[in-house]
Amino acid sequence: MGVLNTISYVFIGIGLFFNLVGVIGLHRFPDMYTRLHAATKCTTFGSIFIITAVIVQSAGIWALEGAYPSQSVMCIHAVLALVALLVTNATGAHAMARAAHRSGEKPAKAVVDDLQEKEND
């Protein structure tokens, strides 16, 4: 159990660090697109690590204490929650970026904007 606890603490540390970086990036960056970078990538990555820590803990209890139904169910359902989060976050970021650009939000300090040139044609 000691090894599993150590692994879980390391994963939780990494996950909390990236979640904090993501929400601080929401305040540090100047415009919507760069905020989307910070928010989507960092919180997805942090959530992967935190949910993996939960999976490791419940799988460890499941393996050590035999057929303990609540922990086995929690392990499988946490994997499903992780898959749902991964699939939906990237697609949602794509939808938000496209909606923002069509509603006329300009990228701040942008060097080149090919999409704007296409819409002007």
């Binding site: 660090f17 990236f18 970086v21 601080i24 990036g25 540090r28 960056f29 100047p30 415009d31 697109y33 760069t34 970078h37 910070a38 990538k41 960092c42 990555f45 650009h101 990228p107 701040a108 300090k109 942008a110 060097v111 080149v112 904007d113 090919d114 999409l115 704007q116 296409k118």
Partner: peptide, 24 residues
């Protein structure tokens, strides 16, 4: 690649050094 991306974004959050563009 995802781990590299997150370390990169964390570096940019801390230093605030960005140079954005939209390319095709």
């Amino acid at each position: 690649a995802m781990a590299k991306a997150n370390i990169d974004v964390a570096y940019r959050v801390i230093t605030g050094r960005i140079n954005p563009a939209i390319v095709k």
